[in-house]
C-alpha cells in the first residue's frame, strides 16, 4: 500500500503575529508541522506499522520546509518530496502543482490535514482530490482500511457520521484521530539518510500560465488590540448580579430586572 501525505510547515501556535513593513515577520519564529497535518503523518505511519505501507510526505514551499519534512521522516515516513512554491501564489495554483505530481505517482491513500492553522482556507487538499477525480472524506477522527475500502468516522455539527469509501481516496485529519508521536533519536538519525527530492514546476510540466493566480492579497492588518476591561468587585452575590445584567444587556434581553 502506498500512502502519500500532503503537509505544510506553519508557525507554532504560540507565536504572535508581527507586521514589519506591511508583511508578516518571520524572523525568530518557531516552525512546526501544521498540527492537523501532523495527525495525518501519524496516521500514515500507523498504517505502515500495522498493515505495511510506504509513506511519502509531500510539501510545497521554499527550502526551509525541508525541516518539517525531515521531522515527518523522523516520525517514520519513508521519503519526502518538496515542490518549489516560489511561483505558487494561491490555493488553486498549489493544488495544481500537487495534482500534477500525484497524477504521476501511484497511491492508495492520500492524507492531509483538515486545514492549515495559518491560511486556514481548507481548500488545497479537497481541490487536489477533485482534480484527480477522487472521493474524499474530510475531518475524520477514525480510519480503518480493509482491502480496497476505507471506513471512517467524522463529526459534523453534532452528528457522528460513518462513511465508507473506495480507495484511492483523500482523507483529511481532524483532532482526535490519534496522538502524534515525538520523533525518537534513532528516528531522527535515520531521517537524515532518507531521500528528500526537490521538484520544480518545470519537472511537473507546468507553465507560469497554468498556475497564474486567481486571487491576490492586497492588504494585511492586525486586529484592534483589546483592552483589559473592568474587574467586578463585591461578593459572589454582587458579582453574579452585575454579570447577569451585563450579559442580558449584550444579548438584547435587558429590561430583565
Amino acid at each position: 500500500m502506498n500512502v502519500i501525505v500532503l503537509m505544510k510547515q506553519t508557525f507554532d501556535t504560540e507565536e504572535r503575529i508581527r507586521l514589519v513593513d506591511g508583511q508578516i515577520a518571520e524572523d525568530g519564529v518557531k516552525w512546526i508541522i501544521n498540527p492537523y497535518d501532523e495527525y495525518a503523518v501519524e496516521e500514515a505511519v500507523r498504517l505502515k506499522e500495522q498493515q505495511g505501507a510506504s509513506v511519502t510526505v509531500v510539501s510545497v514551499g521554499n527550502e526551509d520546509v525541508a525541516q518539517a519534512l525531515r521531522t515527518a521522516l523522523a516520525m517514520g515516513a519513508d521519503e519526502a518530496v518538496l515542490i518549489d512554491g516560489t511561483d505558487l501564489h494561491d490555493e488553486r495554483a498549489i493544488a495544481k502543482a500537487l495534482s500534477a505530481y500525484l497524477a504521476k505517482t501511484p497511491f492508495d491513500v492520500l492524507m492531509a490535514g483538515n486545514f492549515s492553522i495559518d491560511n486556514g482556507a481548507g481548500q488545497v487538499a479537497i481541490r487536489v482530490a477533485h482534480q484527480l477525480g477522487l472521493p474524499h472524506v474530510a475531518a475524520i477522527t477514525k480510519l480503518a482500511i480493509d482491502g480496497g475500502k476505507a471506513t471512517c468516522v467524522r463529526e459534523v455539527d453534532g452528528d457522528v457520521q460513518t462513511v465508507e469509501v473506495q480507495l484511492p481516496a483523500l482523507f483529511t485529519a481532524q483532532q482526535g484521530l490519534n496522538e502524534p508521536r515525538y520523533p525518537s533519536l534513532p528516528g531522527i538519525m535515520k531521517a537524515k539518510k532518507k531521500p528528500l527530492t526537490n521538484v520544480t514546476l518545470r519537472d511537473l510540466g507546468l507553465s507560469a500560465d497554468d498556475v497564474a493566480p486567481r486571487v491576490a492579497r492586497i492588504d494585511l492588518s492586525l486586529p484592534p488590540k483589546r483592552q483589559a476591561g473592568q474587574r467586578l468587585s463585591g461578593d459572589v452575590e454582587a458579582q453574579a448580579e452585575q454579570l447577569a445584567d451585563i450579559i442580558l444587556q449584550a444579548t438584547g434581553q435587558a429590561g430583565a430586572r
Binding site: 490555493e91 486545514f115 482556507a121 488545497v124 479537497i126 477533485h130 459534523v156 486571487v215
Partner: peptide, 22 residues
C-alpha cells in the same frame, strides 16, 4: 460551515476558479 467549507473547493476546482474562504 462544516459542509460549506467541504463543498466549496470542489465547486471552485470544477469552475477552475479562485476561492476566498471564511
Amino acid at each position: 460551515t462544516a459542509s460549506g467549507r467541504d463543498l466549496a473547493p470542489k465547486i471552485a476546482c470544477h469552475l477552475d476558479a479562485g476561492q476566498i474562504s471564511d
